[in-house]
Simulated scan of single mutants.
Amino acid sequence: MRQSLGPEISPNQFGFMLDKGTRNAIFTLSMHMERCIEMQKDLHLWFIDYSKAFDKMRHVEMFRMLDKLDNDGKDLRVIRNLYWDQTASVRTEGEHNDFKSIKRGVR
């Protein structure tokens, strides 16, 4: 899947990419900050919390997007099986409520 998804991922993407982890992002950011200090230029940063976006991703939409990419059918079956018939229940004070179907969120 990494080969077929590679062209879809921005070269600026950090995390979950080979040789592009958090340490690399921090190093790149510090280099930019040092350079701006040397050149006496302003640096503006925005930090975006994507956690809510991933919580709201609909499984049907995700599968539709994965189908459009040139992925091996076996990989898609494995991913679909991860999401197949998911249910959850909330336990409060030792008691469970009714199980509900999960149709959103990324694992």
Rank of each mutant, 00 (worst) to 15 (best):
G21R: 06
D72K: 11
K74I: 03
K20A: 11
R91Y: 01
D67S: 12
I37S: 04
G94C: 05
D85R: 14
Y50E: 03
I26W: 00
H59Q: 07
D72S: 07
I37A: 09
R64A: 14
T92G: 03
I79T: 15
L43I: 13
K56A: 10
R35K: 10
F47W: 07
S30Q: 04
R35P: 00
F27C: 08
S89K: 13
R77T: 12
T28V: 02
L5Q: 11
D98T: 12
S89L: 03
Y83N: 08
I37P: 00
D67T: 11
W46Q: 06
Q86H: 07
V60R: 09
F54K: 11
Q3W: 05
R23Q: 04
D55S: 04
E95N: 13
D49A: 05
L5I: 15
T28K: 03
F14Y: 15
I48Y: 05
L29A: 07
F99E: 08
V60T: 06
F14A: 11
D67Q: 09
D85S: 12
G73V: 02
M31Q: 11
D49H: 01
F63C: 04
I102A: 09
L69K: 15
M17S: 09
S51C: 08
E34D: 08
M39F: 03
K20R: 15
W46R: 02
F14S: 09
S10E: 07
L82P: 02
S30A: 00
G105Y: 01
M17A: 05
T87K: 15
T92Y: 02
L18W: 00
S30H: 02
L66R: 08
D42E: 10
D70V: 02
I37F: 04
A25E: 05
I102W: 02
C36Y: 00
L29R: 00
D98L: 13
S51L: 02
I37K: 12
L5G: 06
R23L: 05
R104N: 14
L76C: 04
D67C: 06
D42S: 12
T87F: 07
P11K: 07
G105R: 03
H96M: 15
K52Y: 01
Q13A: 15
F16D: 12
V90Q: 11
I26V: 15
F47M: 12
N12G: 14
G94K: 12
S10D: 14
S51E: 12
N12E: 14
R104T: 11
S89A: 13
V78T: 12
G73S: 09
D19T: 01
N12C: 14
F16C: 11
D49P: 14
F14H: 13
E93T: 11
E95A: 14
T28A: 10
H44W: 04
S51Y: 02
Y50Q: 08
R80P: 07
A53T: 13
I37L: 13
K68N: 10
F16N: 10
E38K: 14
Y83K: 02
K41M: 13
S30T: 07
K52P: 01
W46V: 12
N24I: 01
V60H: 04
G73R: 05
F16R: 10
